[in-house]
């Protein structure tokens, strides 16, 4: 069954609406929430940190490579790397990694539960399957993404500083001076908002794809791929919208 985008949007909003309705049933998903926070947040920490450290380091190296004029102080590297990390890379790198890691897993889990009738079994028992399966994942995404974002920024900026220092591009003191010179207190707030929206986008889109899986093992595979791709696309869209409205 091929659904056109408008129908999909309708079903997606319907699912979100039902999920909102299920939020007050805290007892249903309390345990699951901790479990999902653990899986989405804590377990994703190493890969997010790794990617963030590399993107911070690469940004430093490339910025210093492009700064050839002796008139420009080296501290400019810090003024470029830190806001890049805070405004864009911290949230987007985390987002892309989690679209693959978390998004695909959510879709595969829920898709398998759908095709093996586990979701039906939950419903048949009298449980709110959306409340039990989707709400904890989306809340975990909303709560843990900003946490991962902070970790990514911390490690990314640290990585940039270390590479700048060890590679002889810019001493740490100058890096920090440059970063401070152009630091806007709203930037990290914007990053937090962004990561929160990304967390919501990735988890809700993946839940949607997984929850409405049809067509056996192949359907699960399709849902998984679609979840990762759709998460990335909507993440970029949300990125643009947020930048246009909040900056």
């Amino acid at each position: 069954m091929v659904l056109n985008p408008i129908q999909s949007m309708g079903r997606y909003s319907q699912l979100l609406f039902k999920a909102f309705g299920a939020v007050p049933e805290f007892g249903t998903y309390r345990k699951k929430l901790w479990e999902q926070m653990m899986r989405i947040g804590v377990d994703s920490m190493p890969i997010v940190m790794l990617a963030a450290a590399f993107s911070g380091a690469v940004t430093t190296v490339q910025t210093s490579y492009q700064l050839v004029s002796p008139l420009i102080p080296k501290s400019i590297i810090g003024s470029i790397v830190v806001p890049s990390m805070i405004l864009e890379l911290g949230a987007v790198v985390t987002g892309f990694i989690l679209a693959g890691r978390v998004g695909a897993r959510i879709a595969a889990e829920l898709g398998t539960m759908r095709v093996t009738e586990q979701i039906d079994a939950l419903e048949a028992m009298g449980l709110n399957s959306i409340g039990y399966l989707i709400v904890p994942r989306v809340i975990a995404g909303i709560v843990m993404f900003p946490v991962l974002y902070v970790a990514a920024c911390f490690v990314g900026i640290g990585g940039g500083m270390m590479v700048g220092h060890l590679g002889g591009f810019v001493p740490i003191g100058e890096f920090v001076d440059g970063a401070r010179e152009f630091f806007q207190p709203f930037d990290p707030i914007f990053g937090l908002i962004k990561s929160l929206v990304f967390g919501f986008t990735i988890t809700s889109v993946s839940c949607f794809k997984g929850y409405y899986t049809a067509g056996g093992a192949e359907g699960v595979g399709r849902a998984t791929t679609q979840a990762a791709v759709a998460s990335c696309v909507f993440l970029l869209l949300a990125d643009l919208i947020l930048a246009a409205t909040l900056l």
């Binding site: 539960m113 093996t116 009738e117 586990q118 039906d120 079994a121 048949a124 028992m125």
Partner: peptide, 9 residues
């Protein structure tokens, strides 16, 4: 309800 495949979690 007993589902076809059991549908154990």
């Amino acid at each position: 309800v007993l589902f076809q495949g059991g549908a154990l979690f």
